[in-house]
């Protein structure tokens, strides 16, 4: 059995009070409690404050490019589907720069868990607006307030093919561990959007802001329609749901590939014989 120390790398460099601390601990606790070890886990990190977890969390990992963590993780999972595969990134990384991969990665129900540190700002570049910020949010890049309405990761994930959609709050590690554990245990594309205060650059969406608005999800919805109605209703009530919102069991991408029935791709027999392929060219 591995311990939390096995997963612990360098001392984090996050700001004191940053929501990342809670997320970092919760990820480690979830992995330990699920009986995983750093050498049985793939993690792909995005670029940003959240991605800097690469040095703080031990695993077989890639600190990838900004926005590109999802396809990278899909490549790893297809190649060795016996490994638990996580993506850790921020809202700017996964919903902004990597938005196309987020939308399309879900369509194949790849068995990966995507954990998004959603703090509504760009922290590492010192405070510009992110895709999830509310309309009117003032930042270094939008001094007059952003004209864009916010990106809606939960709605998109539910409708676009994610088979597990949850939301956690960085200030509540106990329930966050539970949500992350169910996300990892779920076979299929899992999204955990984590509401995270940025103490340095977001003076609007603070711990207090979130606490006032949190709403426990009453039950896990199994139809898209119910899940979406719940999410939309919560938004109109100015509430932020926390918990597992949607879950549906469907075959994963690697389960659907007949050539991976008996082996992982990395262990599949070497088939370099081209004689029979050449016949079609004669």
């Amino acid at each position: 059995m591995s311990t939390i120390q096995d997963f612990t790398g360098y001392q984090p460099t996050w700001c004191p009070g940053c929501g990342n601390w809670g997320i970092g601990v919760s990820v480690k606790l979830a992995l330990v409690q699920l009986g995983l070890s750093p050498s049985s886990t793939f993690v792909v990190f995005g670029i940003g404050c959240s991605g800097n977890m690469n040095d703080f969390l031990n695993a077989y990992s890639i600190h990838s490019l900004h926005g590109r963590s999802i396809p990278t993780a899909i490549g790893m999972k297809i190649s060795n589907h016996e490994f638990t595969t996580l993506v850790i990134g921020g809202d700017g990384d996964i919903y902004g720069e990597g938005g196309n991969h987020f939308i399309h990665g879900m369509r194949g129900n790849h068995d990966i868990t995507v954990i998004v540190h959603d703090n509504r700002v760009y922290g590492l570049t010192t405070g510009q607006v992110s895709p999830t910020a509310d309309k009117g949010f003032k930042s270094k890049s939008t001094p007059q307030g952003t004209l864009n309405i916010p990106f809606k990761p939960l709605d998109i994930a539910i409708s676009q093919g994610a088979t597990f959609v949850g939301q956690a709050f960085a200030g509540d590690t106990v329930s966050m561990v539970k949500i992350i554990k169910s996300a990892i245990s779920h076979k299929g594309f899992s999204l955990v959007n984590v509401l995270q205060p940025c103490v340095s650059f977001n003076k609007v969406n603070t711990y207090a802001y979130y606490k006032e608005r949190l709403l426990n999800v009453p039950k896990v919805f199994t139809t898209k329609k119910e899940a979406l109605s719940f999410v939309i209703k919560a938004r109109s009530d100015d509430k932020l749901p926390v918990g597992v919102i949607f879950k549906k069991d469907l075959p994963t991408y690697t389960e659907m590939l007949t050539q991976l029935k008996n082996n992982t791709l990395v262990k599949s027999p070497k088939t370099t014989d081209i004689d029979s392929l050449l016949e079609e060219f004669i």
């Binding site: 793939f42 792909v44 077989y60 890639i62 990838s64 490019l65 590109r68 999802i70 396809p71 990278t72 993780a73 899909i74 490549g75 790893m76 999972k77 297809i78 190649s79 060795n80 490994f83 196309n100 991969h101 939308i103 399309h104 590939l257 007949t258 050539q259 991976l260 082996n263 791709l265 990395v266 599949s268 027999p269 088939t271 370099t272 029979s276 392929l277």
Partner: peptide
């Protein structure tokens, strides 16, 4: 299927190359 490989038509070229890099990390 014949040669035990996986071919993915991705959403864009950026996805394709990063998928290949992920596979490479995994030893494929």
């Amino acid at each position: 299927e014949k040669v035990n490989s996986v071919v993915v038509h991705t959403e864009d070229e950026i996805s394709a190359v990063n998928m290949a890099i992920g596979a490479s990390f995994a030893g494929v």
